[in-house]
Protein backbone atom coordinates (compact mmCIF):
# COMPACT_ATOMS: atom_id res chain seq x y z
CA UNK A 1 0.00 0.00 0.00
CA UNK A 2 1.38 3.28 -1.08
CA UNK A 3 1.76 5.63 1.80
CA UNK A 4 2.42 8.82 -0.01
CA UNK A 5 4.81 11.67 -0.57
CA UNK A 6 4.01 14.41 1.86
CA UNK A 7 4.70 18.07 1.37
CA UNK A 8 4.57 20.14 4.55
CA UNK A 9 3.03 23.26 3.05
CA UNK A 10 4.27 26.46 4.63
CA UNK A 11 2.04 29.47 4.96
CA UNK A 12 2.73 32.98 6.17
CA UNK A 13 -0.42 34.87 7.16
CA UNK A 14 -2.51 32.32 5.25
CA UNK A 15 -0.47 32.78 2.11
CA UNK A 16 1.27 29.68 0.78
CA UNK A 17 5.00 30.02 0.25
CA UNK A 18 6.19 29.62 -3.31
CA UNK A 19 8.67 26.92 -2.33
CA UNK A 20 5.78 24.72 -1.17
CA UNK A 21 4.24 24.97 -4.63
CA UNK A 22 7.61 24.11 -6.16
CA UNK A 23 7.74 20.99 -4.02
CA UNK A 24 4.17 19.99 -4.89
CA UNK A 25 4.96 20.45 -8.58
CA UNK A 26 8.10 18.34 -8.50
CA UNK A 27 6.67 15.68 -6.19
CA UNK A 28 3.72 15.35 -8.57
CA UNK A 29 6.08 13.96 -11.22
CA UNK A 30 7.40 11.41 -8.73
CA UNK A 31 3.90 10.53 -7.59
CA UNK A 32 3.00 9.88 -11.22
CA UNK A 33 5.98 7.54 -11.66
CA UNK A 34 5.44 5.61 -8.47
CA UNK A 35 1.74 5.66 -7.90
CA UNK A 36 2.34 7.12 -4.47
CA UNK A 37 -0.32 9.65 -3.56
CA UNK A 38 0.82 13.27 -3.24
CA UNK A 39 -0.30 14.68 0.07
CA UNK A 40 -0.25 18.35 1.06
CA UNK A 41 -0.13 18.88 4.82
CA UNK A 42 -1.10 22.31 6.07
CA UNK A 43 -0.80 23.40 9.69
CA UNK A 44 -2.10 26.62 11.14
CA UNK A 45 -5.25 28.37 12.27
CA UNK A 46 -8.17 29.04 9.90
CA UNK A 47 -6.47 27.30 7.00
CA UNK A 48 -9.43 25.51 5.37
CA UNK A 49 -9.34 27.72 2.28
CA UNK A 50 -5.73 26.85 1.55
CA UNK A 51 -6.85 23.37 0.44
CA UNK A 52 -8.17 25.01 -2.72
CA UNK A 53 -4.77 26.50 -3.50
CA UNK A 54 -2.90 23.22 -3.23
CA UNK A 55 -5.57 21.58 -5.39
CA UNK A 56 -4.23 23.72 -8.23
CA UNK A 57 -0.85 22.01 -7.96
CA UNK A 58 -1.80 18.38 -8.16
CA UNK A 59 -2.30 17.24 -4.56
CA UNK A 60 -4.18 13.93 -4.26
CA UNK A 61 -4.99 14.54 -0.65
CA UNK A 62 -4.88 17.48 1.72
CA UNK A 63 -4.40 17.06 5.44
CA UNK A 64 -5.46 20.11 7.41
CA UNK A 65 -4.30 20.47 10.99
CA UNK A 66 -6.18 23.46 12.29
CA UNK A 67 -5.55 24.50 15.88
CA UNK A 68 -5.16 27.65 17.95
CA UNK A 69 -1.81 26.36 19.14
CA UNK A 70 -0.57 26.22 15.56
CA UNK A 71 -1.56 29.79 14.66
CA UNK A 72 2.04 30.95 14.96
CA UNK A 73 4.82 28.52 14.17
CA UNK A 74 6.69 27.12 17.11
CA UNK A 75 9.16 24.28 16.86
CA UNK A 76 7.56 22.28 19.63
CA UNK A 77 3.89 22.47 18.66
CA UNK A 78 4.50 21.76 14.97
CA UNK A 79 6.86 18.89 15.76
CA UNK A 80 4.45 17.37 18.22
CA UNK A 81 1.46 17.52 15.87
CA UNK A 82 3.33 16.27 12.80
CA UNK A 83 5.10 13.49 14.66
CA UNK A 84 1.81 11.92 15.71
CA UNK A 85 0.20 12.14 12.29
CA UNK A 86 3.28 10.84 10.48
CA UNK A 87 3.60 7.91 12.87
CA UNK A 88 -0.02 7.09 12.21
CA UNK A 89 -0.01 7.47 8.43
CA UNK A 90 3.56 6.30 7.71
CA UNK A 91 4.35 8.25 4.55
CA UNK A 92 7.30 7.26 2.33
CA UNK A 93 8.75 10.74 2.27
CA UNK A 94 8.18 14.09 3.92
CA UNK A 95 9.48 17.19 2.15
CA UNK A 96 9.76 20.75 3.36
CA UNK A 97 11.11 23.97 1.91
CA UNK A 98 14.52 25.00 3.25
CA UNK A 99 13.06 28.15 4.80
CA UNK A 100 13.52 29.54 8.28
CA UNK A 101 10.68 27.27 9.41
CA UNK A 102 11.74 24.25 7.38
CA UNK A 103 15.32 24.44 8.64
CA UNK A 104 14.07 24.48 12.23
CA UNK A 105 11.21 22.04 12.01
CA UNK A 106 12.64 19.28 9.83
CA UNK A 107 15.60 18.26 12.02
CA UNK A 108 13.50 18.29 15.17
CA UNK A 109 10.83 16.21 13.49
CA UNK A 110 13.44 13.85 12.05
CA UNK A 111 14.90 13.26 15.46
CA UNK A 112 11.50 12.72 17.02
CA UNK A 113 10.82 10.16 14.32
CA UNK A 114 14.26 8.63 14.77
CA UNK A 115 15.21 9.07 11.12
CA UNK A 116 17.85 10.82 9.05
CA UNK A 117 17.34 13.88 6.96
CA UNK A 118 18.82 15.62 3.92
CA UNK A 119 19.11 19.38 4.37
CA UNK A 120 18.99 22.17 1.82
CA UNK A 121 18.83 19.93 -1.25
CA UNK A 122 19.18 21.27 -4.76
CA UNK A 123 18.39 17.97 -6.45
CA UNK A 124 15.97 15.12 -5.89
CA UNK A 125 15.69 12.04 -8.11
CA UNK A 126 13.46 9.00 -7.91
CA UNK A 127 14.90 5.51 -8.21
CA UNK A 128 13.40 2.20 -7.28
CA UNK A 129 16.00 1.10 -4.75
CA UNK A 130 16.19 4.21 -2.63
CA UNK A 131 12.95 5.89 -3.64
CA UNK A 132 14.61 9.31 -3.43
CA UNK A 133 18.21 10.36 -3.86
CA UNK A 134 19.08 13.88 -2.79
CA UNK A 135 21.85 16.09 -4.01
CA UNK A 136 22.91 18.83 -1.68
CA UNK A 137 25.61 21.49 -1.86
CA UNK A 138 28.21 21.36 0.90
CA UNK A 139 31.13 23.66 1.73
CA UNK A 140 29.05 26.52 0.42
CA UNK A 141 28.58 24.91 -2.98
CA UNK A 142 32.23 24.01 -3.44
CA UNK A 143 31.18 20.35 -3.48
CA UNK A 144 28.05 18.23 -3.60
CA UNK A 145 26.95 15.27 -1.52
CA UNK A 146 24.49 12.69 -2.75
CA UNK A 147 22.61 10.90 0.00
CA UNK A 148 19.79 8.45 0.45
CA UNK A 149 17.89 7.47 3.56
CA UNK A 150 18.34 4.17 5.40
CA UNK A 151 15.09 4.59 7.32
CA UNK A 152 11.51 5.65 6.60
CA UNK A 153 10.02 8.14 6.33
CA UNK A 154 12.57 9.94 4.19
CA UNK A 155 12.87 13.54 5.32
CA UNK A 156 14.38 16.43 3.39
CA UNK A 157 14.32 20.18 3.01
CA UNK A 158 14.64 21.55 -0.51
CA UNK A 159 16.21 24.88 -1.36
CA UNK A 160 13.74 27.43 -2.76
CA UNK A 161 13.94 28.00 -6.53
CA UNK A 162 15.23 24.48 -7.13
CA UNK A 163 12.13 23.34 -9.02
CA UNK A 164 9.68 25.23 -11.21
CA UNK A 165 6.08 25.73 -10.18
CA UNK A 166 3.79 23.79 -12.53
CA UNK A 167 0.05 24.22 -12.11
CA UNK A 168 -1.99 21.04 -12.33
CA UNK A 169 -5.57 20.96 -11.15
CA UNK A 170 -6.75 18.05 -9.01
CA UNK A 171 -9.68 17.14 -6.79
CA UNK A 172 -8.00 16.19 -3.59
CA UNK A 173 -9.64 14.48 -0.70
CA UNK A 174 -9.51 16.91 2.23
CA UNK A 175 -8.96 15.40 5.66
CA UNK A 176 -8.96 17.24 8.96
CA UNK A 177 -6.59 15.87 11.53
CA UNK A 178 -6.61 16.82 15.17
CA UNK A 179 -3.46 18.40 16.52
CA UNK A 180 -2.27 16.31 19.43
CA UNK A 181 0.34 18.44 21.09
CA UNK A 182 2.25 17.35 24.18
CA UNK A 183 2.43 19.91 26.96
CA UNK A 184 6.23 19.53 26.96
CA UNK A 185 6.23 20.87 23.41
CA UNK A 186 4.61 24.14 24.39
CA UNK A 187 7.52 25.62 26.30
CA UNK A 188 8.25 28.40 23.81
CA UNK A 189 5.68 31.12 23.32
CA UNK A 190 5.66 33.59 20.44
CA UNK A 191 5.32 37.10 21.83
CA UNK A 192 5.71 39.16 18.73
CA UNK A 193 6.28 38.77 15.02
CA UNK A 194 7.80 41.75 13.27
CA UNK A 195 7.66 41.36 9.52
CA UNK A 196 9.35 44.08 7.57
CA UNK A 197 6.88 45.31 4.99
CA UNK A 198 8.60 45.12 1.66
CA UNK A 199 7.27 45.24 -1.82
CA UNK A 200 10.30 43.27 -2.90
CA UNK A 201 10.43 39.48 -2.81
CA UNK A 202 12.08 37.58 0.02
CA UNK A 203 15.76 37.12 -0.76
CA UNK A 204 15.85 33.30 -0.65
CA UNK A 205 12.78 32.97 -2.88
CA UNK A 206 13.44 35.77 -5.35
CA UNK A 207 13.73 34.94 -9.04
CA UNK A 208 16.01 37.87 -9.60
CA UNK A 209 18.49 39.40 -7.16
CA UNK A 210 20.57 42.52 -7.61
CA UNK A 211 23.40 42.71 -5.09
CA UNK A 212 25.89 45.40 -4.19
CA UNK A 213 29.31 44.97 -2.61
CA UNK A 214 32.31 47.02 -1.63
CA UNK A 215 31.98 49.00 -4.86
CA UNK A 216 28.75 50.57 -3.56
CA UNK A 217 31.00 52.92 -1.56
CA UNK A 218 28.33 53.75 1.04
CA UNK A 219 24.83 53.05 2.39
CA UNK A 220 23.27 55.94 0.49
CA UNK A 221 23.95 54.33 -2.87
CA UNK A 222 21.73 51.29 -2.47
CA UNK A 223 18.84 53.38 -3.87
CA UNK A 224 20.44 52.81 -7.26
CA UNK A 225 20.01 49.06 -6.88
CA UNK A 226 16.56 49.42 -5.33
CA UNK A 227 15.36 51.47 -8.30
CA UNK A 228 16.55 48.74 -10.64
CA UNK A 229 15.12 45.98 -8.44
CA UNK A 230 11.69 47.57 -8.49
CA UNK A 231 11.61 47.66 -12.28
CA UNK A 232 12.34 43.94 -12.64
CA UNK A 233 10.72 42.67 -9.43
CA UNK A 234 14.04 41.74 -7.90
CA UNK A 235 15.23 41.41 -4.33
CA UNK A 236 18.22 43.44 -3.19
CA UNK A 237 21.23 41.66 -1.71
CA UNK A 238 24.71 42.52 -0.52
CA UNK A 239 28.14 41.04 -0.04
CA UNK A 240 29.79 40.58 3.32
CA UNK A 241 32.08 43.54 2.67
CA UNK A 242 29.09 45.87 2.41
CA UNK A 243 27.41 44.37 5.47
CA UNK A 244 30.58 44.51 7.55
CA UNK A 245 31.06 48.14 6.52
CA UNK A 246 27.64 48.79 8.02
CA UNK A 247 26.08 49.96 4.76
CA UNK A 248 23.21 47.48 4.73
CA UNK A 249 21.58 45.13 7.21
CA UNK A 250 22.96 41.67 7.74
CA UNK A 251 19.74 40.00 6.62
CA UNK A 252 20.55 41.09 3.07
CA UNK A 253 23.91 39.35 3.05
CA UNK A 254 24.41 36.69 0.42
CA UNK A 255 27.25 34.25 1.03
CA UNK A 256 28.63 31.57 3.24
CA UNK A 257 27.85 33.50 6.42
CA UNK A 258 24.65 34.93 4.99
CA UNK A 259 21.82 33.70 2.81
CA UNK A 260 22.23 31.01 0.22
CA UNK A 261 20.26 31.92 -2.87
CA UNK A 262 19.47 30.26 -6.13
CA UNK A 263 17.73 32.82 -8.34
CA UNK A 264 17.24 32.63 -12.08
CA UNK A 265 19.23 35.83 -12.46
CA UNK A 266 21.83 37.26 -10.09
CA UNK A 267 23.26 40.70 -10.85
CA UNK A 268 26.45 41.38 -8.88
CA UNK A 269 27.37 45.07 -8.72
CA UNK A 270 30.72 46.15 -7.33
CA UNK A 271 31.28 42.65 -5.94
CA UNK A 272 34.76 41.22 -6.42
CA UNK A 273 33.63 37.61 -6.12
CA UNK A 274 35.27 36.43 -2.91
CA UNK A 275 34.92 32.71 -2.38
CA UNK A 276 32.51 33.22 0.54
CA UNK A 277 30.20 35.24 -1.65
CA UNK A 278 30.27 32.69 -4.45
CA UNK A 279 29.28 30.07 -1.91
CA UNK A 280 26.01 31.89 -1.44
CA UNK A 281 25.05 32.55 -5.04
CA UNK A 282 27.01 30.06 -7.14
CA UNK A 283 23.91 28.01 -7.91
CA UNK A 284 22.22 30.98 -9.62
CA UNK A 285 21.18 30.10 -13.14
CA UNK A 286 22.46 33.25 -14.83
CA UNK A 287 25.07 35.55 -13.28
CA UNK A 288 25.73 39.12 -14.40
CA UNK A 289 28.72 41.05 -13.10
CA UNK A 290 29.19 44.81 -13.18
CA UNK A 291 32.57 45.86 -11.84
CA UNK A 292 35.10 48.52 -12.68
CA UNK A 293 38.01 46.15 -12.09
CA UNK A 294 38.45 43.98 -15.19
CA UNK A 295 40.50 41.53 -13.10
CA UNK A 296 37.70 40.99 -10.55
CA UNK A 297 37.20 37.31 -9.86
CA UNK A 298 33.46 37.60 -10.41
CA UNK A 299 34.07 37.90 -14.17
CA UNK A 300 35.58 34.43 -14.29
CA UNK A 301 32.18 32.91 -13.68
CA UNK A 302 29.71 35.55 -14.80
CA UNK A 303 27.64 34.66 -17.85
CA UNK A 304 27.52 38.34 -18.79
CA UNK A 305 29.85 41.07 -17.67
CA UNK A 306 30.22 44.80 -17.94
CA UNK A 307 33.52 46.37 -17.00
CA UNK A 308 32.51 49.81 -15.86
CA UNK A 309 31.35 52.12 -13.13
CA UNK A 310 28.25 50.69 -11.51
CA UNK A 311 27.04 54.20 -10.68
CA UNK A 312 26.86 54.83 -14.40
CA UNK A 313 25.91 51.38 -15.65
CA UNK A 314 23.13 50.39 -13.24
CA UNK A 315 20.91 53.44 -13.90
CA UNK A 316 21.38 52.90 -17.65
CA UNK A 317 20.46 49.26 -17.23
CA UNK A 318 17.39 50.24 -15.20
CA UNK A 319 16.27 52.41 -18.11
CA UNK A 320 16.82 49.54 -20.55
CA UNK A 321 14.76 47.20 -18.36
CA UNK A 322 11.96 49.79 -18.31
CA UNK A 323 11.99 49.84 -22.12
CA UNK A 324 11.61 46.06 -22.17
CA UNK A 325 8.47 46.48 -20.09
Amino acid sequence: MAKGIWIIVEQTKLEIRKVSLELLSQARTIADKTGEPLVAVILGKGIADLAKTVAEYGADKVILVDDDKLADYTTGAYTSALNKIIRKEEPQAVLLGNTAIGKDLAPRLAHRLGVGMASDCTGMEYDEANFLTFKRPIYGGKAFAEVTANARPILATIRPNTFPVVAKASQPEVVNETAEIDAADLRAIVKEIALVASARPELIEANVIISGGRGMKGPENYVILEACADVIGAAVGASRAAVDAGWIEQKFQVGQTGKTVSPTLYIACGISGAIQHLAGMGSSKVIVAINKDPEANIFTLADYGIVGDLFEIVPLLTEEFKKLG
Binding site: A143, A302, D303, G305
Partner: peptide, 18 residues
Protein backbone atom coordinates in the same frame (compact mmCIF):
# COMPACT_ATOMS: atom_id res chain seq x y z
CA UNK B 1 20.21 6.71 9.38
CA UNK B 2 21.49 8.08 6.10
CA UNK B 3 23.69 6.52 3.44
CA UNK B 4 27.35 7.50 3.33
CA UNK B 5 27.44 10.56 1.07
CA UNK B 6 28.80 10.33 -2.45
CA UNK B 7 30.81 13.44 -3.12
CA UNK B 8 31.28 15.31 -6.35
CA UNK B 9 32.62 18.67 -7.43
CA UNK B 10 30.59 21.18 -9.39
CA UNK B 11 31.42 21.81 -13.02
CA UNK B 12 33.24 25.10 -12.81
CA UNK B 13 31.43 28.03 -14.33
CA UNK B 14 33.34 29.77 -17.04
CA UNK B 15 33.59 33.38 -18.03
CA UNK B 16 30.83 34.40 -20.39
CA UNK B 17 30.39 37.42 -22.61
CA UNK B 18 31.69 40.85 -21.79
Amino acid sequence: KMSAPKFSLPTPRTAGKK
